[in-house]
Write a protein that binds this DNA or RNA. Structure first.
Lengths: 366, 366
DNA sequence: TTGAAAGCGTTACCAG
DNA sequence: CTGGTAACGCTTTCAA
């Protein structure tokens, strides 16, 4: 795509044009104080309401201050507040990929819970699946300081350096909630292991024997809770695991599409495919379609995450759910609990996962 | 969904358990200075490299400082830096909905460009389509301070209060880039007007006369660049605009689904439906499917945004593209340009939009 | 080449 | 009830 820029096509209509701007800064507490004819401390008091249950400000003074604030359009500087008070009132969240609706859901859950609790929210996505990049993100976050961290990017720990930073801030007493169990910290686990066993036995009960796995996680072991149970369940059912049926690929839809193309042009092609997430599953279904293979008649497809659109696809996607939005809210609640009560016993929340059978799975064709 | 919590199921395996944590704080510059046996200013110098082209630090000292930094795991406090230097090194982005892949793309574009330029990135989503909420987000952002703002949530201006804040920070000289043209500020416009005219005439050329519009924007006028050209083009072609064919609904897939159900059960149902975005279009196709109406044979469907999965749907979705990722990058570049050169003439970047014909559109059935 | 000291916008403590 | 004033962690002159 080409982008055309017209830097010289300048039109001046409204009074707001850059060259006329007076570069005055944000008003400060001092400005407010001067305007209201009180001291800076007084302003601070009315902003923060009562101090320790005492309400030492007269209504008259309070009003004067409030008016001045309003008139000046004053907004307290959160950085200065944080610096001075030692509390950032901020929680940070790291997710692997902003573009995966599953994590958008999770992030939205955290954000809304945070906002409801009057907390700032710092979101970072480790979009590029490179380890140095992950470290950068981590450092960046640490520099900005926060009161608690929710870590959904398990794989950030692939980097030794990132791991060190994490362990260091944790040792310093920084609350951390992990979305999946790794360290001995508060954990919100939504492990897909059990669900995967269910998935495999469901497929087997439908007569499937050759079950492919589209394992698209960008080279990291983020999906082990699906890979290992998949292998175990197969073995347990007396079906030998065929490595040729496991496609390792990237996490994008296109990756899932390409991987499936390979799978479905095998001499003995699978009659069912499990994709590590719904996005990948969309690619799977498309690949099947392009090959003239019908879902679910000729091929059963299962995804994970139950992203919002899964229930609107053609055919509707059979998937495993974990309600990311609620998980996000819950993660925030756990974090807050830890922030407020640092010596709480370790919190472990288990988010149940559930197989949702819809239209993309059916009897094995042969 | 039920969430089960086991707060008392405490397992202690690793040495990292909360009750044992020593609550020591992040090391400060002072700690580093003490460790290296130099003054705080010296530490600051080596962190920031040279000062004004002069490199007043001896290699020996520098190494001592660097070692101390490393040993202590020191990370400078960005807030303090910002406070002291007057530069936040941060850009803020406001998008309407984190859950819409289109905006995820845009946000990712901004984030990656920002990171590449060593800028912090502050993302806010006005997810709940309520105006007070939007104001809160705005205030929250202002409190945290930033060097520049990218505003993709046009509709934030529906709130008078938000508008005032925006105008105030702009008057103070705060760089702003808008994603669609509103005020007389730097603008990256990706207006769908032209494309919409193209869409309508394309549909008409296919023989369609009854063309529905699924207008799902949460009650705001975010989609006027589609609504108005739609009406105009129809009129221009001598086709009367039937208000019954325009469904106003929310922005979710389900909204699109429900709206389409209404549209398709009309006595004289449309033979083509334009959805204001691809997410909605997914709902449209599903609704058609549930009604036994085939796409594109019985019904043509067109969306907007060309979200990544549009090309993998069944059938592949005809849509209008605007490459949100690149737009995000470009928006950041414009913002940086303005930050670095405040008296630049007004920048206007036009992102071309393009109709992409895929499989969801075809000849009118009757 | 390094150190001292002022200041950034707050909070919080301590007198008045 | 209100006003000084010392931090908070850093940058940035200005001297040494």
């Amino acid at each position: 795509m080409k982008i055309i820029t017209y830097p010289h096509k300048v039109t001046r209509v409204s009074i707001l044009s850059y060259s006329q701007l007076i570069n005055m800064n944000q008003p400060t507490q001092t400005d407010v104080a001067r305007h209201a004819g009180v001291s800076r401390a007084t302003v601070s008091y009315v902003i923060n309401g009562l101090t320790d249950g005492k309400i030492p400000i007269s209504n008259e003074t309070r009003k004067r201050v409030l008016d001045a604030i309003d008139k000046l359009g004053y907004e307290p500087d959160a950085r200065a507040q944080a610096l001075s008070s030692g509390k950032t009132n901020t929680v940070a969240l790291i997710i692997p990929d902003l573009r995966n609706p599953h994590f958008s859901e999770f992030a939205t859950g955290v954000e809304e819970a945070a906002r409801a609790a009057d907390y700032h929210f710092l979101l970072s996505s480790t979009t590029l699946i490179s380890d140095e990049y992950a470290v950068d993100i981590f450092k960046d976050l640490v520099r900005r300081r926060f009161d608690g961290l929710i870590l959904a990017s398990h794989f950030i720990l692939n980097s030794k350096e990132a791991q060190e930073i994490l362990s260091r801030i944790h040792k310093r007493g920084l609350p951390i909630v992990e979305f999946s169990e790794i360290n001995n910290v508060d954990t919100i686990s939504a492990d897909y292991s059990d669900a995967t066993r269910e998935v495999v036995s469901y497929l087997i009960s439908l007569g499937h024997r050759r079950i492919g796995l589209v394992y698209g996680v960008g080279g990291h072991d983020l999906g082990l809770d699906r890979l290992e149970p998949y292998q175990e369940s197969l073995n347990a059912a007396g079906i030998e695991v065929d490595p040729g049926l496991i496609i390792e690929c990237g996490p994008s839809i296109e990756d899932g599409y390409q991987g499936t193309l390979k799978l479905l042009t095998l001499d003995a092609r699978p009659t069912a495919i499990i994709a590590i997430n719904d996005l990948l599953a969309i690619g799977v279904m498309r690949a099947a379609g392009d090959l003239g293979i019908r879902v679910p008649d000729d091929l059963s497809v299962i995804g994970y995450d139950d992203i919002p659109m899964a229930n609107y696809l053609m055919p509707r996607l059979t998937t495993v759910t974990k309600d990311a939005y609620t998980a996000g809210q819950k993660a925030f609640e756990m974090l807050i609990a830890r922030i407020q009560t640092p010596d709480l016993p370790r919190q472990i929340t288990h988010i149940p996962t559930k197989l949702i059978v819809r239209e993309s799975t059916g009897q094995a064709p042969f």
